[in-house]
Amino acid sequence: MRGLRDKIGIVAGGGRGIGAATARRLAEEGAAVVIGDIMADWAEEIAAAIRESGGRAIGVRLDGTSAESQAAIVATASREFGGLDFYHTNLAGGTDGDVDALNCAVDVLETSFAINAKSHFLATQAALPLLLARGGGAMIYTSSGAASGGAPWQVAYPMAKNAIHALARHVASRWGKEGIRANVICPGLVLTEAVKQHLTAEYVERGLKAVPHRRLGQPEDIAAMVAFLASDDGIWINGQVYHVNGGAQMRD
């Protein structure tokens, strides 16, 4: 990708799965990366592997639902590497007990919104001042195909993920003239460690049959889109939602 070398970025939720693959890809492209995760040892493990390969990365603990923790990771990027050019906010979770609207408990809804929407809002509040001071930069949000999939078995997670789309479009329209780009990626069924651990082989097989492609997604597929949107190759893209799903959902 053009224009990623020597850029400085944050990957939230970078200890495993999509976030870890993204941190590795960005480092391979020459960016310096701060990896944040609620599991600090995971974040440092990925950062150490990147450093061993000749890249620049550090790992820190990040509680994405805490404004203080979000401010701290942004301050770390500034202190350790000298600024901030992009933030990939990639947190997700809180799906236990998330069922249909008549049976989903309010506390489940609130937990889902804290992890899947509030965390992205707080990341935006923490990162934007540095991006603006830099003369521009990119906010890249991970949503989900669940936001538009219309699943009958789940309500809170799709609602919360939809909120990210509104946030990104707000950021793009409000600060686009000041050099800020804000875009969303909606992954399809991606075979991360968590997916392999929690989904049955039957579910994965059913997912593959539903996709007009030879395989299901890999974390590296999403990492490639993040790298594109963070790079100068994606500089004229703003306020968009990209579905990276092997064709599982075909949308305008």
Rank of each mutant, 00 (worst) to 15 (best):
L4K: 11
G15V: 08
E29F: 02
W42H: 12
H120W: 02
N116W: 01
T200E: 07
A201Q: 08
A40S: 13
D41A: 12
E68P: 03
G64M: 14
P158I: 00
A20C: 04
H213Y: 15
T142W: 00
D252Q: 10
T142V: 10
V244E: 00
T200N: 00
A182S: 13
D98S: 10
T200K: 05
D233R: 00
S144F: 00
E110L: 10
G94H: 10
G176P: 06
E193S: 07
L109I: 14
A21C: 12
G247N: 11
G15C: 10
K7P: 02
M225F: 01
H213C: 11
W236F: 14
I164T: 12
A114E: 06
G97E: 04
G207W: 10
V34I: 03
A126P: 04
S78K: 15
W175K: 05
N245L: 05
G14S: 03
R51M: 08
E193D: 06
L199W: 06
G19N: 01
A32N: 08
T95E: 12
G94S: 09
G179C: 11
A43T: 10
G176E: 12
W153Q: 03
K161F: 01
E202M: 06
E45H: 11
N162K: 12
R174A: 14
G59C: 00
D221A: 10
